[in-house]
Design a protein around this nucleic acid. Structure first.
Lengths: 166, 166
DNA sequence: TTAATAAAGGACAAATTTGTCTTTTTTAGA
DNA sequence: TCTAAAAAAGACAAATTTGTCCTTTATTAA
């Protein structure tokens, strides 16, 4: 993992967890996607129960979230026996921002920094010019970090997405 | 305004507005407190309606928030004719973190970075050692920025807390 | 073709946050 | 003392988010 990737990774985790920028659903969604992606090598498919256990979320709620992810083609699903959820190779390259978009929409990346409705070049908020870049960098971070790269770290065992079993 | 103050200010605004780290109530509360503090020089008192208009929040909701601020002695209130809300001098030195604490509690500054319940020195999350400091710095930023300093900027007219009237 | 399995869909329920309204209490001034 | 003004208090309502459950649809294998 390069230094840049490392920083990228920390940013994602930090943004996704400390801050309530994204909804709870979105956090679950990111965790679920990363888990599924981390097991994308084999032909394995994962059921709702297993995924829910893995990300420590309520099964029924997890199912709902997985449906959304599937609808947005962030993960792939297969019905029937031996069915379940899995990641296709191209999906490993999807950006984490796609998940945010699917779950919460992209407005979080586009709102005025100070929450003013008429913030524009004509009527800028105090930070409009100085920090228009920051917001874009934020979005870029999400856009440049792939699900697959986070999944790789998880596979290595260097990070985890669930609590320690006592 | 020193460079450090400036950075401090931007941090607060950024944290308070972009990110949903703090609740909507808390954002209103910070805006209200800063407004009231910005007019703390005279013997003026401000009524709910005026404050609500200033921060562009629903009056009834603003009243509720002001009660909380008053209860936590972040602002002072006086009932009856010529009454209203105002800031005492010592209250200008209160940290923005006091407002967060009053509205949302301090748990936001104390939770594990990755949301794990059993995150500790014994069972650290991937970021426990590397970023325990970040969380504290976050809290420090809130603790070291006073309501009065933000109010001073507002008085100068270099920043604003409400939308432009078209 | 049928039975079993697992996701899809969508109605419903609970919890939380946001917001409103009415009544009570306090204060100032006539 | 009486009246009016303004906050305090708290019940109530709406909106949003979170979470559950039941029925339908698609798929596999016997």
């Amino acid at each position: 993992m390069s230094f840049l990737e490392f920083i990228s990774y920390l940013w994602i985790i930090r943004l996704v967890n400390i801050i309530k920028m994204v909804s709870k659903s979105c956090k679950y969604a990111i965790r679920a996607a990363v888990f599924i992606a981390s097991r994308a090598n084999a032909e394995e498919r994962f059921g709702v129960k297993e995924i829910a256990a893995e990300i420590e979320a309520p099964p029924a709620f997890t199912a709902k979230i997985l449906r959304t992810l599937s609808k947005y083609k962030i993960i792939t699903s297969l019905k029937g026996p031996y069915g379940g959820f899995y990641c296709e190779k191209y999906q490993l390259d999807l950006a984490v921002s796609e998940i945010v978009n699917a779950m919460d929409g992209m407005s979080v990346f586009k709102e005025c920094v100070m929450g003013l409705h008429q913030c524009s070049d004509a009527h800028p908020c105090p930070m409009h010019y100085k920090y228009a870049g920051t917001r874009n960098e934020l979005m870029k971070t999400f856009q440049e970090t792939s699900v697959g790269s986070l999944a790789a770290d998880l596979s290595k065992g260097s990070v985890f997405i669930k609590n320690e079993v006592l």
